[in-house]
C-alpha cells in the first residue's frame, strides 16, 4: 500500500523521531511511504484558539497537499481528530482520508504484531483525542501487547486528561499544572521507566513535567516503541 505521511508540524520540528519511527514501522511491513514536502500544519491550534478564519486557509492547503492520496497516516491522534472532526465545517470540500497510526495498523491493515522488541517497563497514556475524539479503543494497547520483551503496566486513571489541551496549557496554566501533577503521580506510581502515548503534544507536556522533577522516566511516542527491534 502506498501511504502518504502527515508528520505534523510539531513532530517535524520537536519530535522528529516519532515521524522516523512511523516510516520505519510501515516500511518494515512492506508498505511504501511518501512524504509530501509541501505539508506544514493542519491548523488545529488556530481553530481551537478561536481563529477559525486563520485555520480555514490552512485546512484548504492541507486538502490540496493530501487530496490525491488513498491513505494518509499521522502519528498524532490530535491532528487526525482535527482533520476528521473540524475540516468538514471549515473547508466544506472533500476531506483527505487520514488515519492515526494505530488505527491504520490495526483497523485498516489488520496488523497487531509489527515485529517489535522493547525490553522496558512501559505505561501507556491514551490521549483524549485518540480515546474519545477518534474512538481508537484498545488498538494502541493491542499493538503494545504484541511487542516482545515489553513489560506493560496499567496507568491508573488513564483516561483522565493530562492537562495539555493546546493553548489551554498557556491560558489556564495553573489548572493545567494541577492536572499534570495528578497525571505525573499516576505515571510514577506505575514504576514504569517509559511513558508512551500517540500524541507528541501530550508527551512534550508530560515529559517536560517528568524532566523538571528529575523523575528519571522517559517519554516515547508509541511509534518509537513499535519501531524498536531491541
Amino acid at each position: 500500500m502506498r501511504i502518504a505521511l502527515f508528520v505534523t508540524c510539531l513532530n517535524d520540528t520537536f519530535a522528529p523521531s516519532a515521524g522516523r519511527a512511523t516510516v520505519e514501522v510501515l516500511e518494515r511491513l512492506g508498505h511504501e511511504v511518501v512524504f509530501p514536502e509541501e505539508q506544514t500544519c493542519c491548523g488545529q491550534m488556530h481553530a481551537n484558539t478561536g481563529y477559525a478564519d486563520l485555520a480555514a486557509p490552512l485546512a484548504r492547503r492541507f486538502a490540496r497537499v493530501f487530496g490525491g492520496f488513498d491513505a494518509v497516516v499521522s502519528p498524532s491522534a490530535s491532528c487526525v481528530a482535527m482533520v476528521r472532526g473540524q475540516y468538514p465545517g471549515l473547508v466544506g470540500e472533500t476531506v483527505p482520508n487520514v488515519y492515526e497510526l494505530s488505527e491504520l495498523l490495526v483497523d485498516v491493515l489488520g496488523v497487531e504484531d509489527v515485529g517489535a522488541t522493547f525490553a522496558h517497563r512501559v505505561t501507556y497514556h491514551p490521549t483524549c483525542h485518540g480515546l474519545r475524539g477518534l474512538g481508537l479503543g484498545d488498538a494502541p494497547l493491542r499493538l503494545l501487547r504484541n511487542v516482545r520483551e515489553i513489560e506493560l503496566v496499567e496507568l491508573p486513571e488513564a483516561e483522565t486528561c493530562c492537562g495539555f489541551g493546546g493553548t489551554f496549557a498557556v491560558k489556564n496554566a495553573d489548572t493545567s499544572a494541577a492536572m499534570l501533577t495528578d497525571k505525573l503521580r499516576c505515571v510514577l506510581d506505575t514504576g514504569a521507566d517509559v511513558c508512551t502515548a500517540g500524541d507528541s503534544s501530550c508527551l512534550l507536556h508530560i515529559g517536560g513535567g517528568l524532566r523538571r522533577q528529575r523523575a528519571g522516566v522517559r517519554t516515547l511516542h508509541l511509534a518509537e516503541i513499535l519501531a524498536s527491534t531491541g
Binding site: G50, C128, H129, R132, C161, F164, G165, G166, F168, T175
Partner: peptide, 10 residues
C-alpha cells in the same frame, strides 16, 4: 469561560 476546558471530551 470558553477556554476553561482542555477539550478532553469527557
Amino acid at each position: 469561560l470558553p477556554w476553561a476546558s482542555s477539550l478532553c471530551g469527557a
